[in-house]
Amino acid sequence: ENFSAARFRLPPQYLEALKSFVLNGGALLVKGGDNAFSSGGYKNSPLEEVLPVVLSARAPDFVPGLFSAKPGPAEHPLVRLYETAELSQRAWAALPPLDGWARFASVRAGSTVLASHPREKTEDGKPLPIAAVRSYGRGKVMLISTDSSWRWKLGAAADPDASGFYGRFWTRAVQYLTGGLDLSKVKFAPLPDRVPPREPARLSLRVFDESFGPASAADTRLSVVWTGPDGRAREVAARVTEPGAYAIELTGLAPGTHKVRATARVRGRAWGGDEVKFTWEPAQEEPMDRGWLTKAAAAGGGIFVDVASVRPQELLDLLPPSVPREETVRRLRPFISPFWLALAGGLFLLEWALRRRFGHA
């Protein structure tokens, strides 16, 4: 961390040994500062070959100043530190600013930028890395270009969105460097031990690219093999539901343990695979409590009958006999009835008499 090889005249064989250590499976964390990188004499050294970046030839290459790091691929395990990508992005946005960053010439191919400067660029015009990782040989390397990450701890102590970020980030970083972090790029969504007893059984699969963004379906060749309880393997289709996400539906399920394995190739390269196992059982009908049903029917004045054990005619015979109903229809035609005609005429005469008496005629 922020160590100058030039100032302390570190012999080149030490850096060569460090390079060999990583190449053979070791882990290396490099943190920056005003004595690190090119300012520390590491340009064109064996250590530079290991880093996720190409160091700048300009000196000094460290620039003081406050800035807020911009997170990289939302689904990368070192960026998504909380249960959901939304919570993680909220935590990144709530972090206090860092102080100082290093200039770099470029990012090496195969490296993943976890966080970048919001405005500064590398010398080849790409976003300037603040945190980046890379595999080198059988080992792993992580670079943090500033020595002020402690500000994430002290400055965020009172913020509920960011107070636990520092611990989560460095815990995840150690897991990555020591091989304890799952970085597979082909992943099934978790399943319960027993899936719901219905068909089709639905599985969800995601395929990520180098930066843990969604892998393009056009670049991806996916093979999904389903092995049933009888040991017979068959290939099933995977349907694209959104970029990098696939749905798999299984029908004709037999009771027992099922295994589904997915393997992917992206742009012709083997990309990895994942496997999921689950137990499926058909839905079981709950047995009837005949005693309780008989009592309930009797309490309501009826009887309990198991329809599965009687013939249709027997059910019809149990129904109460039908009661015929008589319906009398009477039609009234007032304009051909003498009574109604006389009543209507009398009302008209009464109206005429009243109108004349009160002067309205």
Rank of each mutant, 00 (worst) to 15 (best):
R9C: 05
D99Y: 12
A162Q: 03
V307L: 13
L154Q: 08
L154S: 15
S211R: 02
L315R: 04
A270C: 04
R261P: 01
R232V: 14
P12I: 02
E249H: 03
L66M: 06
A173M: 08
A36H: 00
E16S: 13
N44A: 11
P97Y: 10
A233F: 00
P192W: 03
Y42S: 00
S135G: 12
I303R: 15
K187M: 07
L87Y: 06
L154T: 15
F278T: 03
T263Y: 02
V240C: 00
L316M: 11
V240I: 11
A215F: 10
A218S: 15
Q284V: 13
A270G: 12
L15S: 06
G125A: 12
K70L: 12
R232T: 14
E242D: 14
P96Q: 11
G26K: 06
S68Y: 03
R221D: 08
R239K: 15
L318A: 11
R234E: 14
L95F: 08
E285K: 13
R108N: 07
F165N: 03
L354G: 12
A102D: 02
L55V: 04
R7T: 08
P11H: 05
R7M: 07
A233W: 00
I336Y: 06
P60V: 05
L128D: 03
S68I: 04
F208L: 00
S38L: 01
R90K: 08
A17P: 10
E281R: 10
A245W: 01
E199K: 09
E249F: 00
P118K: 07
K126H: 11
P320G: 06
G100L: 01
D147N: 12
F165Y: 03
E16C: 04
L143M: 11
A158T: 13
S322G: 14
L293Y: 14
Q175H: 12
A85C: 08
D182H: 15
F62C: 07
G155C: 10
W352S: 13
A217V: 01
V22Q: 00
T227P: 04
P255M: 03
R331P: 05
A74M: 04
K140M: 06
V54K: 13
R234C: 05
E210V: 08
V307M: 13
D193G: 14
A237Y: 03
G272N: 05
E48I: 11
G32T: 07
V260Y: 01
F339Y: 15
L316Y: 09
V305Y: 07
L315T: 06
S322V: 15
W280C: 01
L66N: 14
F62T: 09
A344K: 10
R261D: 04
W150N: 12
G302M: 09
I144L: 12
F165M: 08
G291N: 11
S111V: 02
D317C: 00
V323C: 06
A297C: 15
A102W: 02
R232S: 13
P214G: 03
